[in-house]
Design a protein around this nucleic acid. Structure first.
Lengths: 337, 337
DNA sequence: CTGTTAGCGCTTTCAC
DNA sequence: GTGAAAGCGCTAACAG
C-alpha cells in the first residue's frame, strides 16, 4: 500500500540490532539510562551502519514540536535584518534549535507563510518589521492557536503575542526639522520602493518627512532608492543635475544616504555645505563616510529583547500575556548634516 | 494517551461538516471533482469556521514530501547569495514550493543541517558555495538517500548530486597579473576573515594572489576585510598610511574593493594612478564608483542554471546522474585598474 | 460521490 | 531493561 522510501527507519535499525523499535527510540533520544550498555552499543552501531536519521515529520507529529524557530523577513539583504538573523541564530544554537528563514514580499508568500506557521513548521516565530501583507488578523489567529510569536510592529497591539516597537516617527521628524533648522530650503526624500510607488507598508519615515516639509512650507521631492545603493546613487545624481537641486537629502536608509554622499562628492559638491545628508538605520557604515553620516536609529543594533522574548515564550508552560517593549530611537547627529 | 493540542484536526472538521475525514481530505487537497458541490461547501465552511489548517508533519509523513526546498548558505548579507536566494524564491513560487534558508557558519550548524536534510525537512536543497564545514561524505550520503541536491563547489565531483562550478582561480590570476603588467610593485590582498586567519574554506582567490606575487617576486601583503565594508575601509586606510604603502589592491570582494576606493580618495590618492583596485564578484555597485570598479566574476549574476537543475531533479521520476555546469568567470576590466 | 481502512515513522505508556 | 501496542493527523487505495 505504501512503498518504501529507501531511507532506513527505526524498524530497520531495530531489526539489524535485534531489538524492538522502542529500544531504538530510547537509545536515540538519550533515554539511555533505561537501556543496558551493551544493547545501547548494538543499536548505535546499527544506526551508524545504516546511516539512519529519524524522520522529522514522524517525530514532530508524535512529539508535537519541531525544535525549530522561524524568522520571517520582508526582504533579503537589509542590514538590520541580517543582524537580527545573526542574533536569532546564535540564541537558537544555544537552545539547540534550528532556524528557518522565510522571505515574504508579496501577498501569495504571506498567505503561504501563515499557512506554514499554522501547520507548525516551527515551534515559534519572529516577524520582522515591515513585512508587508501580513495582517493582524492572521497573526492573532496564529497566536490564538498557541504559536509563540514576537512581532516587530508599530501598529499592532500585543494580543497573545509580544510586540517590539521602534518609535521611528518622532526621531525622523527631529531629523528633518533639523535640516530646516540649519537653513535648508529644498529637502528631498529618498524612499523605499513601496512608499514611492504608493504601495502600503510602514510609512513613518515618509510621513515624518511630509509633515515636516509641510510645516516648513517646502516642496515635496520624493525619489526611489532606499532599497538599493545603485538606484539611490543614480537618483541623487539625477537630482543634483537639476537647476533647482536640493540642498538636503533625507534618505530612508543609511545605504541610500551613503550613496547620496558619494553622488554629491562625485558631482563636486561639499557635504554638508552644499548638500546635507541624513540617513536612517544607524549602520556602522555611516562611520566611515567622509563626513560621518548623521542618521536616525537606535543607539546600536541590538535585537536581544526580541530574541529573548521568543525563547521565554517557548519555554513558558503557560503563555505570558502579550508584552510590549520599545527600542529607543533618536536622531544621531554626526557631520553630514 | 495523547492529549489534544487545541488545534483542530481533520476529524473535527469532518464531524462539524457531518462527513468522513476522507472527504475533508479530498476537498482540501483539491481532489474536488470527486466531491459533490454541496458537500464541498459544507466542508469548506466547517474548516473556515474552525480555522483549520492541516498538520504539516502528518501530511509530509504520509505524502513523503514537504513541498519545500532548502537553501543553505554560509553567511548572511553576501550580495551574491542574496541574488541566489531571490531567484530560488521566485522559481519556488512558480512551482508552489516554500523556501527555507539555513545559515551554516560553524561545524555544529553544519552537522545540524545535514541532520535536518536527512530528516527530510525539505524535498531538495541548494548548497551555496563556500559553505564551510560541509564535507563531501555528508553530501554524498544525503544524495544517496535520494535527496535532490545541487551543490556549488569547485572541489566536489558530482556524485548523485549536481555541481555548479565557478572557475575563479584563472580569472583571479589574470586580474593580479594585470596589476603587475601595468607596473604595480606592491599589491596587497584584502581577504575573507577565514582566509586571513588561516582557517579552511575556498582559497582560490588567495591562492591566485599568492601565486602571482611569487611569480613576480613581490611582497605578500594580506589583510582582513572582504566580509565587511567597515573593516575593509579601515584596513586599507591603515595600509595607505604606511611608508611602504601598496600601489594596488586585490580585494576578495567588490564590497571591500569599493571601500578601498573610498579610503584612497579620502586619503587624497587618485585611483588608479596612485592606487589600482580590483575586486571580485561583479556587483552592480561597482558601476557607480568613481572610477568604475575593475572586477573578477561572471558576466552577470545569474543562478538560473542552479535553480533549474534543482527543480529538474525534483520533478524527475528517476534521478539524473550528477551533472556539472560551469559559470563563466573572467577579469572584467573597467577603470580602477 | 463518499466512507472505511491501513498505514507513514516515531514516541511513550504499560506490562513483563 | 526491554517489548507490545496505541496512536499523532493525514492520505490514498479500495469498496460500495
Amino acid at each position: 500500500m505504501q512503498q518504501r522510501t529507501g531511507r532506513p527507519t527505526s524498524r530497520d535499525v531495530a531489526a539489524l540490532a535485534g531489538v524492538s523499535v522502542a529500544t531504538v527510540s530510547y537509545v536515540l533520544t538519550g533515554r539511555a539510562t533505561k537501556v543496558g550498555a551493551e544493547t545501547r552499543q548494538r543499536v548505535l552501531e546499527a544506526a551508524r551502519q545504516l546511516d539512519y536519521a529519524p524522520n522529522q515529520s514522524a517525530r514532530s507529529l508524535r512529539r508535537r514540536k519541531t525544535e525549530r524557530i522561524c524568522l520571517v523577513v520582508g526582504s533579503i539583504g537589509v542590514p538590520a535584518y541580517d543582524q537580527l538573523a545573526r542574533e536569532l541564530h546564535d540564541k537558537a544554537d544555544e537552545e539547540g534549535h534550528g532556524v528557518l528563514t522565510i522571505v515574504v514580499n508579496n501577498a501569495q508568500r504571506a498567505a503561504q507563510t501563515i499557512e506554514l506557521l499554522h501547520q507548525r513548521i516551527a515551534d515559534g516565530a519572529v516577524i520582522a518589521s515591515s513585512v508587508p501583507f501580513l495582517d493582524g488578523d492572521a497573526l492573532r489567529a496564529l497566536a490564538r492557536s498557541g504559536l509563540p510569536l514576537v512581532v516587530m510592529s508599530n501598529e499592532l497591539e500585543p494580543e497573545g503575542f509580544d510586540v517590539v516597537r521602534a518609535p521611528e516617527r518622532p526621531a525622523c521628524t527631529e531629523a528633518v526639522d533639523h535640516l530646516f533648522a540649519i537653513g535648508r530650503k529644498r529637502v528631498a526624500y529618498v524612499g523605499h520602493h513601496r512608499e514611492v510607488s504608493g504601495d502600503s507598508g510602514n510609512h513613518e519615515r515618509l510621513a515624518a518627512y511630509e509633515d515636516s516639509i509641510q510645516r516648513h512650507g517646502a516642496k515635496r521631492i520624493v525619489v526611489d532608492g532606499a532599497d538599493d545603493r545603485v538606484v539611490a546613487y543614480r537618483a541623487v545624481e539625477n537630482l543634483l543635475r537639476q537647476k533647482d537641486k536640493p540642498d538636503a537629502i533625507f534618505a530612508a536608509s543609511d545605504r541610500a544616504a551613503i550613496s547620496a554622499i558619494w553622488a554629491a562628492r562625485d558631482a563636486g559638491l561639499a557635504v554638508p555645505t552644499d548638500l546635507a545628508v541624513v540617513g536612517v538605520g544607524n549602520l556602522e557604515d555611516g562611520l566611515i563616510t567622509k563626513p560621518p553620516l548623521s542618521t536616525v536609529g537606535p543607539p546600536q543594533l541590538d535585537f536581544s529583547a526580541t530574541t529573548s522574548m521568543l525563547f521565554e515564550r517557548l519555554a513558558a508552560t503557560d503563555p505570558p500575556a502579550g508584552r510590549e517593549v520599545t527600542t529607543p530611537w533618536s536622531f544621531i547627529q554626526r557631520e553630514s548634516a
